[in-house]
Design a protein around this nucleic acid. Structure first.
Lengths: 333, 333
DNA sequence: TTGAAAGCGCTAACAT
DNA sequence: ATGTTAGCGCTTTCAA
């Protein structure tokens, strides 16, 4: 692969001039421009971003750690962040942590060694590991350290809304399927749900799942719940888990929403595909993604960013797994 | 961020020794090892992968282009490739092309400029753009150039199996919802399906969708199909589109599989979540992913790899959207 | 306007 | 067993 020196030589021109041309920095005569352009095309020359990054100390790469790219929520988020980043001239370095501390640590090292411009850590399982990182970092959902910005949805309030909705729809015998303890977001949903229930003097039963998204495992967990049809309302910690729960209920011949009403969390695309379609709590994923990457780019550019929690509003999306206003279920076409 | 020279100085030792220590290449005395290790830890030093890559001409990064990371099939594939790559010391640079030629071209340039070690191009929309790339490339699904290896499932045969299955289950009035023309894979599914139908003298109707995975659009397309309930069997080009079709049918009160049987393609996780669960054609995604990355790494290592099409077997996964053996229709084969 | 030269952090050949 | 040095491809003073 050719380099700048080769271009300069073939164009019969100095190396610095070529660099100026390539980066559009400083004067280059029309004559030189033409000569250079010609050679660049002939040799199919692409500047070496590595060398450039080494000098400028700006790699134009952003490391994005997600717990699991197969979770529809996180891959929608990745798409949004990627799109925005691309428009700002950054490319995304994607890392799948599987909610595994060791994997995350490992990736952190890789990202550091590649001198990425910034890091987005979603649902991080680490803390002190980030102490000596001198690359801008923003966190999504799980907090990392006091000096690292955390962005999240208002999960607590989302949990509250979920309860209030089920309650309003007449549910009194309610189950909550909660996420793993290490997920701050699902813990908050749980707390919000619980507090809202207490306010109405309703007792809530619980099952805790040990992972985010592993169909087989969820089915195993839930199969142990023999008395599941005792409930008239279930709040599941996210949409993908809700899909599994729905499938399980339908297999048992339980009618949704007539016998059991369901509410999920995320508003990921899967909720619309299910039948009946899933009532859920919306996380403003565009806003979330944009805020994350905006804040990170500000940090990268050395702009002043206030170190605080950035919390985006959640809202209820009413679909078919909860009973519609007239209490009579009807397909909507 | 500190560099090797600084480490060497603080350890009171030569720069080359530090490099040898870091890369475990050549002799380093026990004494020196200790000194270096101490300083490395003190300064939280991580070698600069950029500088290293610049010298060794081996970036240890693999560029993975996918049409859409939100399609469950492609993100399962991305996970598999990433896992394998990681075990081989490579990291994945993820690029979302959205099946857009310009985006792909653009990413190709980015990957080139970062001197990635290899490129995986899924469902590429480009051809000549790859002519002058001197980085190893493997293609998934769509062919690019004669000298580029293509890996894919046996889509043609998969299409055939889909027809044969519907036919065996008694379907005679059959619709095929086919993918965009620019997807080689779905074209082959279509051809296989058609050929199998011809062999049985069955006429097939068609609808063509213009994109892979855009819920709204599919719904719009399908809404125009008023007579959809005339059919007793539908083959949809992939699972995610099949999910949309099922949702539409159920909204209309059409019973699946009693009135219409459905078969998808991919065997992505979504098929198991649907109710009834989706009969589909399995793409051996592990094998596909592993083959892709294995071949690419061989190319990177300069091993001899035969330039040909690598085609993996598909197979039928029978679930609930087609009628189980002992039900209803008498197969008339 | 332009080019020569220094230097980004690293590796490897070579000399010690 | 270790240190000196050249050079990977680039950008950017600085002098012409």
């Amino acid at each position: 692969m050719s380099n700048i020196r080769e271009i300069a030589k073939k164009a019969g021109i100095g190396i610095a001039t070529v660099s100026r041309y390539l980066n559009d920095t400083g004067y280059v005569s029309e004559e030189s421009r033409k000569k250079i352009q010609k050679v660049v095309e002939e040799l199919n020359y692409t500047p070496n971003a590595l060398a450039r990054a080494m000098f400028t100390k700006n790699s134009k790469i952003i490391g994005l750690m997600v717990p699991n790219i197969s979770n529809p929520f996180f891959n929608q988020m990745a798409s949004i962040i990627e799109e925005y980043a691309k428009n700002m001239g950054y490319t995304i370095f994607l890392c799948n942590t599987d909610d595994d501390k060791e994997k995350e640590k490992n990736y952190l090292e890789v990202l550091q060694s590649h001198r990425v411009a910034g890091i987005i850590a979603s649902r991080s399982q680490c803390k002190e590991e980030y102490t000596n990182i001198d690359i801008p970092v923003v966190a999504f959902e799980n907090h990392i350290l006091d000096n690292i910005i955390t962005i999240s949805s208002d999960n607590y309030n989302g949990g509250k809304m979920a309860f209030d909705h089920l309650y309003k729809k007449g549910c009194r015998k309610i189950l909550h399927i909660k996420g793993p303890k290490s997920f701050e977001a699902t813990e908050l949903r749980y707390e919000g749900f619980l507090d809202a229930a207490k306010a109405k003097n309703i007792e809530i039963d619980f099952i805790e799942f040990q992972s985010d998204f592993q169909v087989e495992m969820l089915e195993a967990d839930i199969n142990s719940m023999d008395n599941i049809s005792d409930y008239d309302g279930i709040f599941v910690f996210n949409d993908i888990a809700a899909a599994t729960v729905m499938r399980f209920l339908k297999k048992r011949g339980v009618e949704i929403p007539q016998e059991v009403q369901i509410i999920g969390f995320d508003n990921s695309f899967i909720g619309e595909l299910l039948y009946p379609s899933l009532t859920t709590i919306n996380q403003p994923i565009e806003e979330l993604g944009n805020t994350i990457i905006e804040l990170l780019i500000k940090l990268i550019n050395g702009e002043n960013v206030s170190i605080e929690d950035y919390i985006m509003e959640t809202k209820l999306i009413e679909r078919e797994t909860t009973i519609s206003a007239n209490l009579k279920y009807e397909p909507s076409i």
